[in-house]
Design a protein around this nucleic acid. Structure first.
Lengths: 337, 337
DNA sequence: CAGCCTCCTGTAATCGATTACATCAGCGGC
DNA sequence: GCCGCTGATGTAATCGATTACAGGAGGCTG
């Protein structure tokens, strides 16, 4: 038994042809009952497992989906990928993952080599000419790019930013700083736009610090914030990581949260509720996002219908914890100078 | 161009046979220079990409590795998987991921269907009879199981626990509590054994709370700790997550870290250095672990030599931050009662 | 010039499954 | 008894690449 069991071996063991074995396995209904039992017994006895390459070649579909993310090391993607894997696994599809920043040629090879039936794309910054040229069904998730002309799923980032601003404004804050994400990122844009909208609607003037999604960017923003003469009393950061960095650095500089500054994050990563202080943040239902995107893709693949167009937007949900509190600006102003 | 470009199309465009195209692509050295140029031009002109299923079938190797992890949603795996993907990508191998807890039959199908050349196994709790029966090269990573009889790579968990104990003992702590991981987990055992060893070597009596790796387990452990009449002054937890939960809950209960209790975590996850207080913890070089395991597997695959046996153990490295400090037991004891 | 070797390229078998088509048994109706 | 139909199964072509083997061109040696 050193060599792999082939369908012909099963056929021989069951005393039928390979066609019958194949049919028994893929559409049991059309073979005779007694034959089916014999074949199943032979399959069990030989320990036969289908050869994926041969099936894929003949059927011209690999029964797999490809997940492309800009940075697999980012903890944000975990639950998303886990959910995709879960849905795909249920449907009998394999999951391949790749770094979407691997380089154009490598990416083309990965996508075009026929190893995947469909793609979940978590990166909005690839070359649109390349992406548009892909012949597989693609669904964008979290990030998006209008130039891809592809369907997508994400939370309503602009609305989320508005919710964040309104929460802070309701607490009495009037000087609100937004630590924005990377300038070229679509999420940064949407969140920043929502921030500016909501501030305008409240009659407040927006203040923006060009930051990033990382802990380091948050820490740097804290320094910038600390150096402002008349410091904003609230900060809305582009991500939880950024908020963590901001808060940690604030403590290091001698400030306290929310006493000296209220902070709202974005994402509600696993850890946000256990931070000190527990972080008020916009929740991203990552498992749900992954599941929903995967389900949409899988059902399109199974029914062989196109994915459809347009974006599904999930309404934002603010989780209020302890990093935000009512503005104590008057009190602070006395002690400040 | 609606249908996929095949090797025959390239051959026709270049005016050569399919064999020559294949040779040009896989071993350019053996075709004539002028021919090679013509073929390359034809490949570029047609946009040809090799069909993976056909190649895999003929070559009998899928050029892919499979990563099996017990819980993909766990943030611990991110950097490991990213590193594996990086190494594999460089070598032209695809990466497939699956949940190792998907169920025996599904797992068997995934492993045996011939989609992968080798496996990185992050789960030490699968049925040994199943794993031993796999015909692919497998390397265990982080977790291990002697009954698999497979090579592996991990940090020296027992030594790490000893380092943690020594650090605390050097700070003057004599009452040290270990919040252990899940009882059936191999990492829990190794860390606990190392803890007990080191305590014995120091002439201290080990105290153990049966906990877990999660934030919730840490929080529960904090309650248990708080209820001890004569509380240990230091805690060594099974994981960073557990430490976070422990510390958060301590604050909620009115204790401070490290003032009232020193805490050491395990893993040094991304976030540990930015926690409040920054967490003293055992560093797990996750990117390195992933890279090294992948390199060992890839090189075995490329040279077609067996993986070899035995475990590679990486020496532990303690990162000292601010969640541990010298024992102030005498001072505390005065105020305690 | 024969003989042989090297270098390059083409022909065709092959990997292991799927499936269109052919075949055959059994049955019912006229 | 003949025809046609249905349902079950076998035969063999096929998916798209790789590669063993064959063959031809050109050069070198004796």
């Amino acid at each position: 038994m050193s060599t792999r069991v082939r369908i012909a071996d099963v056929a021989a063991a069951a005393g039928v042809s390979t066609a019958t074995v194949s049919r028994t396995l893929s559409s049991p209904g059309i073979v005779g009952e007694e034959t089916r039992a014999r074949v199943m017994a032979a399959v069990a006895a030989t320990g036969y497992r289908i050869n994926a390459a041969a099936r894929d070649l003949r059927r011209q579909q690999p029964r797999a989906i490809l997940v492309l993310a800009p940075n697999l090391a980012n903890t944000f993607f975990n639950r998303i990928i886990a959910a995709i894997q879960d849905v795909a696994g249920q449907a009998g599809l394999a999951v391949q993952i790749s770094d979407s920043r691997a380089g154009t040629d490598m990416l083309e090879t990965i996508v075009q080599c026929g190893r995947a039936d469909g793609i979940v794309l978590l990166d909005g910054a690839l070359r649109p000419e390349m992406v548009r040229n892909w012949k597989l069904p693609v669904i964008q998730l979290c990030e998006w790019n209008d130039d891809y002309a592809l369907p997508g799923l994400q939370i309503d980032n602009a609305a989320a930013a508005r919710v964040a601003v309104n929460h802070l404004a309701d607490l009495g804050h009037t000087r609100i700083l937004h630590v924005a994400g990377p300038s070229e990122n679509v999420l940064s844009h949407a969140r920043r736009a929502g921030f500016e909208d909501a501030m305008a609607a409240r009659g407040l003037s927006p203040e923006i610090h060009q930051g990033g999604f990382t802990i380091e960017a948050g820490a740097a923003a804290a320094h910038a914030w600390a150096n402002i003469a008349d410091r904003p009393t609230a900060v809305f950061t582009a991500s939880d990581e950024c908020a963590f960095g901001f808060i940690s650095e604030c403590y290091r500089l001698g400030f306290k949260v929310p006493r000296d500054v209220s902070v709202i994050g974005f994402d509600d990563v696993d850890f946000a509720g256990h931070f000190l202080p527990p972080l008020t943040t916009i929740h991203q239902p990552r498992a749900r996002l992954g599941r929903q995107a995967a389900e949409r893709l899988v059902s399109a693949l199974q029914s062989d219908t196109p994915l459809g167009a347009g974006y599904d937007q999930i309404p934002p949900h603010l989780v209020i914890r302890s990093s935000t509190s009512a503005c104590s600006a008057s009190k602070r102003r006395e002690t400040d100078r």
